[in-house]
């Protein structure tokens, strides 16, 4: 399932790093998520920018199991985008 435009807009962040990470994931990987994964991604988008970046760069971990499953997918998607 492709991301809806509202989710796309919520991926507009205050930091370029987050913009690129999240945009990369929307283009490469988001459509593989099931409903649980999509819900977890929405929860991740609710985090402040610095925390979001720390989680995706794995400087911090989270007790939210759903988000913990989505983070490696975001990293993989960005790495795949880098090889394009």
């Amino acid at each position: 399932m492709k991301p809806d435009t509202q989710t796309r807009w919520r991926c507009r962040r205050g930091m370029l790093e987050n913009d690129l990470l999240l945009k990369g994931f929307l283009d490469h990987g988001y459509d593989q998520l099931d409903q649980e994964g999509r819900d977890a991604f929405e929860r991740l988008l609710g985090y402040p920018d610095n925390l979001l970046l720390d989680l995706v760069l794995e400087r911090q971990s989270t007790v939210d199991a759903g988000i913990a499953r989505v983070v490696p997918l975001i990293r993989a998607a960005v790495a795949a985008g880098a090889e394009d």
Binding site: W9, R10, R12, R13, G14, M15, L16, P48, D49, N50
Partner: peptide, 11 residues
């Protein structure tokens, strides 16, 4: 246009 705490000052 974005939620206030997503403004670029955050960077």
């Amino acid at each position: 246009k974005v939620f206030p705490t997503r403004s670029h000052t955050v960077a």
